[in-house]
Design a protein around this nucleic acid. Structure first.
Length: 477
RNA sequence: GGUCCCAUCGUCUAGUGGUUUAGGACGCCGGCCUCUCACGCCGGUAACGCGGGUUCGAACCCCGCUGGGAUCACCA
């Protein structure tokens, strides 16, 4: 790993810095996606950085979960993963630098004293913040001292933001925030800046819940003598109650959507459209996104996560996918449904019949069950309505003709049905429904000719014969 | 409460002063297609938060209000 900043000034370098305190949720995934798309779009690079300085809450399981989610989404990176806990020496050096330059100082105020300060400020209607007790005391390092950044008391700090324009903060709203805890570990706002500088990050795309941190970070850039990155604070993704996404909003983890039968490209497509637009276009392939994504058409207002729309989009992506490409995604869901299938022409033919009628892979796996399920178990209502005496003659006739038919192509099958209709005088519905129940166990399935063609002669004859026996065994009446 | 951000159909959005009776998508409701359910197609429902300006003309520009959100740690 290298700490050399990228020297190619016009190469875009973005980053995705998750903190491993849980799974990757949809909001985080969108942030990763925007950074990734922008890097890919510009031919730049994306850095992955694990922000694990909160050792109490960070877990390896979370790190693994994040990798797993990113991999499923197809989001990769060019540099890293870096772990902040492995960079403490670097942070320490920068803290020393700021202390030496007079931009930071040691503070020995206790938690109680700080608390009292806040109470006093609140009582007098002021902003509760550090009052600068140790600011000019020139204290030396000691075991219980923290290091505070010496923030300017007057003036303004402006955050130049690509999405929101210039955001102006009064410096007297900021206080001397802590950059190094009494246990010697650096704090978030500090490590982010040191990392972004040393990793050569020149484009920071993140949720706008970070805008309040940005002036502090800008002050740090200034003190460290580094050039500011381009900022793009993207509006947040909210739950349907319009508040920050959290546990109570139900499924939030990216992998939960994988497990519910969503395609990664559909999730990506949905997420990118939540806050970014390209005219009226709704459907995008990943390649198209890379080609078209840009910071200029990111919206300004927060968006609400809408599972219905995701599902509709998932249906579109299923429909747009080649059957062969769906195979590896579908197989695990078939296994979960309790039956096994194997990749091959049969599965692909099955998928073709199901693509237009499936919103998720779970639905598809459920709907595909009958193609593999022998013998067919009839749904009670379906059997009662269609597998009765009246169906005996046409189904018998159809079975005979099917046995004799040379071809099992849909065209030929249609002719067979036409012949049966002519001989029995029945309409197609009267014949197709009993056959559908005989072949699938239900009244709902893909087109009857499709089903017969895909199942093939052997299965069809076996199932029709079984249905005939079933009807024959029925008690009179 | 302070600070900051935001404001077009229920939701995601197009729209950057006149081409707008405000378009698309999801959802919802009808209809068509039809061997079932879907798909598809056709049609419908539904929005510029309010009040002031600026302008010959405002969804688009300015101000105020209201509403919503974010954030205020020795978390990240």
């Amino acid at each position: 790993m290298s700490n050399t900043p990228d020297t190619l000034a016009d190469t875009i370098v973005t980053r995705f810095p998750p903190s491993p305190t849980g799974y990757l949720h949809v909001g985080g995934a969108r942030t990763a996606l925007f950074n990734w798309l922008y890097a890919r779009h510009t031919g730049g690079k994306m850095v992955l950085r694990i922000e694990d300085t909160d050792t109490a809450r960070s877990t390896q399981a979370s790190v693994d979960a994040i990798f797993e989610a990113l991999e499923w989404l197809g989001i990769d990176w060019d540099d890293g993963p870096y772990y902040q806990t492995q960079r403490f020496d670097l942070y320490k050096a920068h803290i020393d630098q700021l202390v030496a330059s007079g931009d930071a100082y040691f503070c020995t105020c206790t938690a109680e004293e700080i608390e009292a300060m806040r109470e006093r400020a609140k009582a007098s209607g002021d902003k509760p913040r550090y009052d600068g007790t140790c600011r000019e005391r020139n204290l030396s390092p000691s075991t219980d001292a923290v290091v505070r950044f010496k923030a300017p008391l007057t003036g303004t700090t402006v955050v130049p933001d690509t999405v929101k324009g210039n955001i102006v903060f009064q410096n007297n709203e900021l206080d001397d925030f802590i950059i190094c805890r009494s246990d010697g570990t650096p704090t978030y706002n500090f490590v982010v800046v040191v990392d972004d500088i040393t990793m050569g990050i020149n484009t920071v795309i993140r949720g706008d819940d970070h805008v309040m941190n940005t002036p502090k970070q800008i002050l740090l850039y200034n003190a460290l003598g580094a050039a500011l990155p381009t900022y793009a604070h993207v509006p947040m993704v909210l739950g349907n109650d319009r508040t920050r996404l959290s546990k109570r909003h139900g499924a939030m983890s990216v992998t939960a959507y994988r497990d519910m039968g969503f395609l990664p490209q559909a999730v990506l497509n949905y997420l990118v459209r939540l806050g970014w637009s390209h005219g009226d276009q709704e459907f995008f392939t990943v390649a198209e996104l890379i080609e078209k994504f840009g910071l200029d058409s990111i919206g300004k207002s927060a968006g609400i996560f809408d599972a219905d729309k995701l599902q509709a989009l998932n249906g579109d992506h299923i429909q747009a996918s080649a059957a062969a490409d769906l195979v590896p995604h579908l197989l695990p869901f078939m296994a979960a449904e309790g039956y096994s299938a194997e990749a091959g022409p049969y599965l692909e033919a099955v998928i073709k019949t199901l693509k237009p009628r499936s919103k998720t892979l779970v639905e598809m796996a459920q709907a595909a069950h009958f193609y593999y399920n022998d013998p067919i178990v009839y749904e009670e209502k379906a059997a009662k309505k269609f597998l009765k005496a009246a169906a005996l003659e046409p189904v018998q006739l159809l079975t005979e003709k099917l046995k004799a038919s040379e071809s099992f192509e849909e065209k030929a099958l249609e002719q067979v049905f036409t012949a049966v209709m002519a001989e029995t005088g029945l309409k197609l519905g009267k014949i197709a429904q009993p056959v559908r129940v005989a072949l699938t166990g239900t009244t709902v399935s893909p087109g009857i000719f499709e089903v017969i063609a895909v199942l093939g002669r052997e299965r069809v004859i076996t199932r029709l014969t079984a249905a005939l026996s079933y009807i024959a065994a029925l008690p009179e009446g």
